[in-house]
Measured scan of single mutants.
Amino acid sequence: AEKTGIVNVSSSLNVREGASTSSKVIGSLSGNTKVTIVGEEGAFYKIEYKGSHSYVAKEYIKDIKDE
């Protein structure tokens, strides 16, 4: 089941290729951006990003809701 969340950062949140802080950064999301969460892996959520799937750190996503 998909969930949505809100990016909870003051500046921007790195979007990564994989579920690791050493993964390549492929983009960023600004605070209060709504994201669609399709899964989770460790400390990361797998999200829909620009037509494919990428990862963001869970600690920076708030207001998780089931869609």
Score class of each variant (00 low, 15 high):
residue 1 A to V: 14
residue 1 A to C: 15
residue 1 A to K: 14
residue 2 E to N: 15
residue 2 E to T: 15
residue 3 K to F: 10
residue 3 K to W: 15
residue 3 K to L: 10
residue 3 K to T: 07
residue 3 K to Q: 07
residue 3 K to D: 03
residue 3 K to M: 10
residue 3 K to N: 05
residue 3 K to V: 08
residue 3 K to G: 05
residue 4 T to K: 08
residue 4 T to H: 10
residue 4 T to F: 14
residue 4 T to A: 07
residue 5 G to N: 03
residue 5 G to V: 05
residue 5 G to S: 03
residue 5 G to T: 03
residue 5 G to F: 06
residue 5 G to P: 02
residue 5 G to Q: 03
residue 6 I to E: 04
residue 6 I to M: 08
residue 6 I to R: 09
residue 6 I to Q: 05
residue 6 I to N: 04
residue 7 V to F: 03
residue 7 V to W: 02
residue 8 N to T: 12
residue 8 N to K: 12
residue 9 V to R: 08
residue 9 V to L: 08
residue 9 V to C: 15
residue 9 V to Y: 07
residue 10 S to F: 09
residue 10 S to E: 13
residue 10 S to T: 12
residue 10 S to V: 13
residue 11 S to E: 12
residue 11 S to G: 15
residue 11 S to M: 10
residue 12 S to D: 07
residue 12 S to N: 10
residue 13 L to P: 08
residue 13 L to Q: 03
residue 14 N to G: 08
residue 14 N to C: 15
residue 14 N to L: 15
residue 14 N to A: 15
residue 15 V to N: 01
residue 15 V to W: 01
residue 15 V to Y: 03
residue 16 R to E: 01
residue 16 R to D: 01
residue 16 R to I: 05
residue 16 R to H: 15
residue 17 E to T: 07
residue 17 E to G: 06
residue 17 E to R: 07
residue 18 G to V: 06
residue 19 A to W: 05
residue 19 A to M: 04
residue 19 A to Y: 04
residue 19 A to H: 04
residue 20 S to E: 06
residue 21 T to G: 09
residue 21 T to K: 12
residue 22 S to I: 08
residue 22 S to T: 13
residue 22 S to V: 09
residue 23 S to I: 02
residue 23 S to E: 04
residue 23 S to T: 06
residue 23 S to F: 06
residue 23 S to M: 04
residue 23 S to V: 02
residue 23 S to Y: 06
residue 24 K to P: 10
residue 24 K to A: 10
residue 25 V to A: 05
residue 25 V to R: 04
residue 25 V to K: 05
residue 26 I to W: 02
residue 26 I to P: 01
residue 26 I to D: 01
residue 26 I to M: 06
residue 26 I to Q: 04
residue 26 I to H: 03
residue 26 I to S: 04
residue 27 G to E: 02
residue 27 G to T: 02
residue 27 G to H: 02
residue 27 G to F: 03
residue 27 G to Y: 03
residue 27 G to N: 02
residue 28 S to H: 14
residue 28 S to D: 06
residue 28 S to Y: 13
residue 28 S to G: 06
residue 28 S to R: 13
residue 29 L to H: 01
residue 29 L to G: 00
residue 30 S to W: 11
residue 30 S to E: 13
residue 30 S to L: 14
residue 30 S to V: 12
residue 31 G to S: 14
residue 31 G to I: 09
residue 31 G to A: 15
residue 31 G to L: 10
residue 31 G to D: 11
residue 32 N to Y: 11
residue 32 N to G: 15
residue 32 N to W: 12
residue 33 T to N: 05
residue 33 T to E: 10
residue 33 T to L: 06
residue 33 T to W: 06
residue 33 T to A: 09
residue 33 T to D: 08
residue 34 K to R: 13
residue 34 K to C: 11
residue 34 K to M: 12
residue 34 K to V: 13
residue 35 V to H: 01
residue 35 V to D: 00
residue 35 V to T: 01
residue 35 V to W: 02
residue 35 V to L: 05
residue 36 T to G: 04
residue 36 T to V: 14
residue 36 T to E: 04
residue 36 T to L: 11
residue 37 I to N: 00
residue 37 I to R: 00
residue 38 V to S: 04
residue 38 V to Q: 03
residue 38 V to R: 05
residue 38 V to G: 01
residue 38 V to H: 05
residue 38 V to I: 13
residue 39 G to H: 03
residue 39 G to I: 02
residue 39 G to N: 04
residue 39 G to V: 01
residue 40 E to L: 06
residue 41 E to A: 08
residue 41 E to N: 07
residue 41 E to S: 09
residue 41 E to D: 09
residue 42 G to V: 03
residue 42 G to H: 04
residue 43 A to K: 09
residue 43 A to P: 09
residue 43 A to M: 11
residue 43 A to C: 12
residue 43 A to R: 08
residue 43 A to F: 08
residue 43 A to N: 12
residue 44 F to T: 02
residue 44 F to D: 02
residue 44 F to V: 01
residue 45 Y to W: 12
residue 45 Y to P: 01
residue 45 Y to C: 03
residue 45 Y to A: 01
residue 46 K to C: 10
residue 46 K to E: 06
residue 46 K to P: 00
residue 47 I to L: 02
residue 47 I to R: 00
residue 48 E to C: 15
residue 49 Y to P: 00
residue 49 Y to Q: 01
residue 49 Y to D: 02
residue 49 Y to A: 00
residue 50 K to V: 05
residue 50 K to I: 06
residue 50 K to A: 10
residue 50 K to F: 10
residue 51 G to S: 06
residue 51 G to C: 07
residue 51 G to K: 05
residue 52 S to E: 08
residue 52 S to L: 11
residue 53 H to D: 05
residue 53 H to E: 07
residue 53 H to L: 11
residue 53 H to F: 14
residue 54 S to V: 14
residue 54 S to M: 12
residue 54 S to C: 14
residue 54 S to D: 01
residue 55 Y to S: 00
residue 55 Y to W: 12
residue 55 Y to C: 01
residue 55 Y to P: 00
residue 55 Y to T: 00
residue 55 Y to A: 00
residue 56 V to S: 00
residue 56 V to E: 00
residue 56 V to C: 04
residue 56 V to T: 01
residue 56 V to H: 00
residue 57 A to L: 15
residue 57 A to S: 10
residue 57 A to Q: 13
residue 57 A to V: 07
residue 58 K to E: 00
residue 58 K to T: 03
residue 58 K to R: 07
residue 58 K to N: 01
residue 58 K to S: 05
residue 58 K to Y: 02
residue 59 E to V: 11
residue 59 E to W: 08
residue 59 E to N: 08
residue 59 E to S: 08
residue 59 E to F: 08
residue 60 Y to P: 02
residue 60 Y to M: 07
residue 60 Y to F: 13
residue 61 I to P: 00
residue 61 I to N: 01
residue 61 I to K: 00
residue 61 I to E: 01
residue 61 I to D: 01
residue 61 I to T: 01
residue 61 I to V: 08
residue 62 K to N: 10
residue 62 K to F: 10
residue 62 K to R: 12
residue 62 K to P: 02
residue 63 D to R: 11
residue 63 D to G: 08
residue 63 D to I: 15
residue 63 D to S: 10
residue 63 D to Q: 13
residue 64 I to Q: 06
residue 64 I to F: 09
residue 65 K to C: 11
residue 65 K to P: 09
residue 65 K to D: 11
residue 66 D to G: 10
residue 66 D to P: 12
residue 66 D to N: 12
residue 67 E to G: 13
residue 67 E to L: 13
